[in-house]
Amino acid sequence: MENTSLFGRIRQSEAASGLLLVSPTAIYAILLLFAPLATVLVYSVMTDAGAGKIEWVFTLQNYVEVWTGKVYRAIMFRSLVVSMAVTLCTVLLAYPIAYFVSFHVAASKKSLWLFLITIPFWTSYVIRVFLWKVILGYNGVINSGLMSLGIISEPLQAINYNAGAMVMTLAHAYAPFAILPIFVALEKIDRSLLEAGQDLGETKLMTFWRVTLPLSMTGVIAAVLIVFIPTIGDYVTPDLIGGGKIPMIANMIEVKMLKQNEKAIGSAIAVTAMLIVALVSIVFLILNRRFLKGQK
């Protein structure tokens, strides 16, 4: 009987209406997201009985195999290196363009520039990735173009089907996801702060380094996470650009879970991938915590 006060009843009914309203979405997410993730977690500590069957015997052997096996470690390491390289390239290339649009383009032309930047990304992702294969391939556009111009006589092999080509493709695919958050952060900066910096005797470069860059770090951090998380799990690019020869985590999960039908070990890889993503993201956020202070 402790909730009979008016305040208690309002709170209770407010809580009840809120829960009622959110329940369809919440139940959907519990059934189709939480339950599947829990299943994968349970599978990962069970035993593969062959032919896609799971034997309900608890074991940590899957994790031992995934964390110590040479092939697994090589693929996970490669995924991490490729996605970090992609993130670095994408964000470094994106920052100047976001800066240019925010600081050097007249307000009336900003939407035109954003429009121009986003248009290429309304094309099918699969087609865009394939086009990079066509451009960078052995008999591809660059090689055949340079050869018909007589600049080279042999096709360049350094550009096709390697990790570098994958980085280039992904850096292109995720460009707007990096540009837009940085642009939004730059737009929020009070321009009088920059004038203040210069009035106090800083050079333009130092003003950028000490005022603009720290204030735009929230956008940079968002861009890093937005690019890093999907690229580490990318499936299309390693398959099309790498020609299946340089698989990443997603391809390995597919091979284990579907082609070799070893669900337990596949689940252990999936859980490990999630741990890697979470760990890298958390470390990154901790390293940058001073920029996030005072933000929501």
Binding site: L33, P36, Y235, K263, M274
Partner: peptide
């Protein structure tokens, strides 16, 4: 913040 492959595979399982 989950790689799509993990969403797809866990749901498929």
């Amino acid at each position: 913040v989950l790689p799509e492959m993990i969403v797809a595979m866990s749901l498929l399982m």
